[in-house]
Design a protein around this nucleic acid. Structure first.
Lengths: 206, 206
DNA sequence: CATTAATATAGTACGCGTTCTATATTAATG
DNA sequence: CATTAATATAGAACGCGTACTATATTAATG
């Protein structure tokens, strides 16, 4: 078990530092010039390293883009929190959060594309990414809003997940299938909320 | 108003023929080797024309990919119809259709990517595409299933749109955000259906 | 200091979508 | 036939993500 000769592997902190340096620059480019401006070659140039060096720290572009999620989610969360400040009634709070969530993604198609449409869905081998605690917290915020409205604890997770995926679906449809005459976003969102707010004990049966 | 000299513009039928020839070849490649295999250069080679000629008939790659939607939607629709054959009860038919719809997109991530994730959401200028009648029919199928279950005609469109976008959202979340411990697809789908099946006269209020 | 292993770099390469320019082909008019 | 306008082609170019190879550079060991 003697230590081998040669240069030792980078320290954990060094790795993290370099990664965050690259991610931070990617964020700066994205914020300033949008999705298409973020390229590996340019990123390397601005970070001050060779293009191939980035591949020593990230698996690929997707791996870098995921670090931008955190920022986008935080931005969205801020918008929701601002709207919730002056609202006390639980149901109205959930309604406002839901409407704001959907509006955010509809109003920011580029952010929507970044988070939900820039993944290579086909390849399942590169899914080693673990959602960071900060991003998960935003999901949990909805869980808490739902929990206050629902009395039945057992259904909170299923209800929240359905709500979240439903909201995202509304945003996706409005963003991608533009020529279909979709019902107004607010109306669909309200309708979706119905399945959460109206307590249901049994699965739908004929 | 005398006719100008020179070669006349292609006839409508010629244009349609060439377009469908290209689209058909794109479909063949997609079916045989998947999404990534469909490239402009290869498509041109197999069609037997120069790469640039394609741009005379289509605005770009997106414009071609949309022609593949028709085929994918038809495939999905077939699967649903097959499942519905032996079911009579309206609610059960709607349930089966819903479950099959979601399963289809979860089981075929490449098709999902093609239809819902390969659009350039950011640029709104290229949305001249008009959904063809055949694809719209599949949306209408859900509308009819919903209509039979709901007595109230006025809510059918809003309910159907919400259901469709919700189903797509479930598929999107399961496909893209893989490390989040989503509730079982069937459970979320059932829960989503609740908002449609359970008749609601007023929007949710506290 | 010499060795050794981890890391970074430079350069090349492939195919991609897309744009541009210049040239050829085609099918009508006068 | 000459003219003319619509169309097709060839070829180069740009930047892209990514892979490969070969060559430094670095920081530890013996």
């Amino acid at each position: 078990m003697a230590k081998t000769a040669g240069r030792p592997p980078r320290s954990e902190s060094d790795i993290a530092e370099y990664r965050s340096k690259i991610a931070k620059q990617a964020l700066a480019i994205y914020r300033a010039e949008g999705f298409d401006a973020v390229s590996m070659r340019r990123l390397a140039k601005e970070v001050g390293c060779a293009p191939m060096t980035i591949y020593a720290h990230f698996e690929g572009k997707q791996d870098i883009l995921r670090y931008l999620w955190t920022d986008v989610f935080a931005d969205m969360s801020n918008e929701i929190q601002g709207k919730l400040e002056r609202i006390d009634a639980p149901v109205e709070r959930l309604q406002m959060a839901t409407q704001t969530f959907v509006s955010y993604w509809v109003d920011h198609p580029d952010h929507f594309r970044l988070v939900f449409m820039s993944n290579d869905v086909t390849r399942s081998d590169v899914s080693t990414f673990v959602m960071d605690e900060e991003t998960l917290a935003h999901f949990r915020m909805f869980s808490e809003l739902v929990q206050v409205v629902l009395q039945d604890d057992s259904n909170v997770k299923a209800s929240t997940d359905t709500l979240i995926s439903g909201m995202i679906g509304i945003a996706l449809c409005l963003n991608t299938i533009r020529d279909y005459p979709w019902t107004d976003a607010k109306m669909m969102t309200d309708r979706l909320l119905t399945s959460i707010i109206a307590p249901v004990d049994t699965a739908p049966r004929s």
